[in-house]
Nucleic acid binder design. Sequence first.
RNA 1: GGUCCCUUCGUCUAUCGGUUAGGACACCAGAUUUUCAUUCUGGGAAGAGGGGUUCGACUCCCCUAGGGACUACCA
Length: 470
Amino acid sequence: MTDRPKVVTRFAPSPTGSLHIGGARTALFNQLYARHTGGTFLLRIEDTDRERSTEANVQVIHDGLSWLGVTPDAPPVFQASRAARHAEVVQEMLARGQAYRDWTTTAELDIERERARAEGRVVRSAWRDGDAAKIPNDRPFAVRLRAPLDGETVVADLVKGDVVFRNAELDDLVLLRSDGTPTYNLAVVVDDHDMGVTHVIRGDDHLNNAARQSLIYRAMDWTAPAFAHVPLIHGPDGAKLSKRHGAQAVGEFAEMGYLPEAMRNYLTRLGWGHGDSEIFSDDDAATWFDIIDVVKAPARLDWDKLNFVNQQYIRAADDVRLAKLAADVHRTRGFDISPERLATLSQVIGLVKEAAQTTLQLADLTVFALGVRPLPLDEKTGRLLTPETAQRLGRLRENLSRSAAWERSALEGDIRAFAESEGVGIGKFGAALRGVLGGGAPAPDLASTLVALGREESLGRIDDALSQAQ
RNA sequence: GGUCCCUUCGUCUAUCGGUUAGGACACCAGAUUUUCAUUCUGGGAAGAGGGGUUCGACUCCCCUAGGGACUACCA
C-alpha cells in the first residue's frame, strides 16, 4: 500500500462582497472532500485587493460559513499578511531566470494588446528578451513569468478531465506589480504550496487560471496540487445567479427561513448525486462524497426543491429549536415574544410543523396562538358568523365548557357528538369556529387548536366573537 | 475575435457499450379530509442536431448549434 499524503483542501474567498451560495457550495465540497478522506479543510481570506477588501466582508464570510456549518479546521490565513513571502518567491524566480523585469508602460501595453489581438496571438513584453543595456533604472518595473513559448500544459482536472492548453496561448503573467505587490495568480500558488494544499477545489471560472498557475509551479519546481473545478450555480432561468433570482448571499437564505442543514443537503445534492438518495445526513454525505463524482455542468437553483428539502428538515427538527426560530421571525415582524409566548410557541409548533416549508411559514402558522383577546373579527369569519351559526357556536360553547377533560381526543369526540345532536355536518360550523379561535389566521384542526389555546382562552375567544357578531 | 468548459424529463440527477432510460422536486388526475396543508394511488414528461466506431450506442470519436467562463500590473 502506498503512503499517500494527507489531503488538505481550502476555500479561498476574497472579502469584496457577500458570500454567495455558489461559493458556499464550493466551501462545502472542500469540507466534504476533506472529511471523506480524513484530511484537513482550511480557509484563506484573499484580501490582497486592498481597495475592495473590507473588515465587514471578512465578517460576512465567517458568519455565513459558521451559519452553514462549514467551518475550517484551522484558523484562517490572511493573504495580505504574506506579501513578503510572495515577493521572496518572485526574487527566487528572477534568480533562476524563470521571471524577468518588465518596464513596459501602461500606454505601451495597451498598444501591444491591441496588436496582439489583431494578430491573433498572446501579449508578449519586449523586455522578455530585453537588452540589459537599455534598462531605465529610474523607472519602476513589474515582474513577469518567463512562460514556455511552445509545448503544452495539461491540467489534470478531477471534474473536467484532462484539459490541454497550448503554451503559445498562455501569456507571461505578471507576478509582481510595479508597486511591488504580488498578483493573485502568484499569491494563490505560493500560499497553496506553503499551506500544503493537496487539492484545489474551486469555481469553474478559474479553469483557465489553472493552466497559468501550473506554469508557476513548474518554474519553482514545486509539485502542483490536484485541481477540481466545480461549475457555478445558475439561476432558475439558466443565467448566472444574481439578485433578481431572489437571493444569492447565504445570509439571505437564512433570513428567508431555511435551515442550515437543509441548505447543506440541497447544495450538496445540487451538482452531485449518489444513486437515488435525496435526503441524507452530513455523515452520509461525507462517506459518499467524492470530488470526481461532481457533475460537470452548471446547475440551476430550484426554489421548489429547496423548499421541499427544507420542509423535510423542519419536520425532523426539534420543537423547542423551531419555536425559537419562529420567535425570531415574529420579533422581526414586530411581535413581542415574552417567555410565556415562547412556551406557547413550543407547544404549538408540533401541530403546524408538518405544513411549513420555511421558518417564515412556521411563524405564519403560529400567529393564531399569539393573539391578545379580544381578537378583532376578520372579514371572512364575520361573514361566516350568521345569526344561525352564531347561535350554534353559542350552544357548542356551552357543551365545551362542560367538557371534563380538555384534551384532544375528548374534544374531538365532543365536537362530533355536537354536530350529530345538531343534525349537521362539522363543515356547517367548523370554519366559523376556526376563524373565531384563530382570529382569521390559519390554525390546525379544531380539537388541537382548542388544546393549544387552553380552556379559558378558547372559551374567551368564542365569547368575544359572539358578542362582536351581534 | 481568441482560448477553454458544458449539453439525459420543466428542474436536480441515476446510468459508466446491451435497461420498458430509474429516482426526486414541480405538474396533472383520483382517494382521504372540519380550513389550509398533509398523506395515499395513478399519470404525462428526457438522451440538442448530424456524422462516424461497433453485432449493439445516452454512454467512445468528429462536426454543427446553443449556453457559459476567461481573455487586467481584479480576485
